[in-house]
Design a protein around this nucleic acid. Structure first.
Lengths: 155, 155
DNA sequence: TATTGTTATACTCTATAACTATA
DNA sequence: TATAGTTATAGAGTATAACAATA
């Protein structure tokens, strides 16, 4: 589809809100000595117990990056590493109670920080926004759309 | 306001879409050796020519962080530094033509990458989403409760 | 004295390459 | 041989502290 004004407007909004939300997450994480990535990892671990390579793939990071990241969080007692049951090469990552508690607190803090903004919408608008975002989020974005850049639209 | 389900849903959507958009920006930036912050700086410089300290405040970064960041971008010819007209201590940052061209290309690439998602909404829904996001973005978020620099002079 | 910006230092995040252990 | 993870290394991003120049 050729991008129109409404596409530009929505992309602009998404990018700017992304920077705003990331700013909030970064600040709140930093206040507890957690990087954005560590915060994200903890959020993921609340619902899953992935292997190192799963986590790396999901985050789009190299395995080696995860090793250091997870090691630092483990040293702080926020998560643990455990050898895989079947595949003895694998390492599964598990959140600890302390990690879960901290994550819960931080995400509540994020919600409270964003409250002045979200409160400007009425409940119906919030539902609507949540649904529109959900629709975008369930779209696969061809993770690595390498170089083919067929000039579109504007001659 | 006490957070309800619609608030949780919208915060969840905002956080997840922020990570998704940041992922796209990070990847596209990286393909051109630009960090997320540099990409953001270039985006800002398209419309403004701020001083170093303005930029640092806007980005929520320390002045010293900007020095290195701007120096690297300047070395690549994407922007230039110039001494302030009135205040001779100040340094204003200006985007170059090369920087402007690159920024434009990258933002188009971002739009195209997000297209599979944004195309799932019809124009009316896109307008609606853009408006809802705009409403959130124009809300001041009790800006970074930055620890107010506790006097660092020597006695 | 206070502000603006840079530099020196230290740490985290990140990727690449080389390595070990298991499959 | 191929895969999972770690370690060594190097560069960028970041903040703190100390500094120079200007206000």
């Amino acid at each position: 589809m050729v991008p129109d004004d409404s596409t530009d407007a929505v992309v602009d909004g998404l990018v700017r809100s992304a920077f705003q939300v990331m700013g909030v997450l970064t600040r709140i994480g930093a206040e507890h000595d957690l990087s954005l990535t560590q915060l994200r990892v903890l959020g993921i671990l609340r619902d899953r117990h992935p292997r190192m390579s799963d986590l790396a793939a999901f985050l789009g990071l190299d395995k080696s990056t995860l090793s250091g990241l997870i090691a630092r969080a483990e040293r702080r007692g926020l998560l643990t590493r455990s050898t895989g049951a079947n595949d003895k090469r694998a390492v599964v990552v598990l959140i600890t109670d302390a990690g879960r508690d901290l994550t819960q607190r931080l995400y509540e803090e994020v919600r409270d920080t964003l409250a002045p903004a979200t409160d400007r919408l009425d409940p119906q608008q919030r539902e609507q926004l949540a649904q529109l975002l959900e629709r975008l989020l369930t779209t696969p974005l061809s993770a690595t759309p390498r170089p083919e850049r067929p000039v579109r639209g504007k001659p």
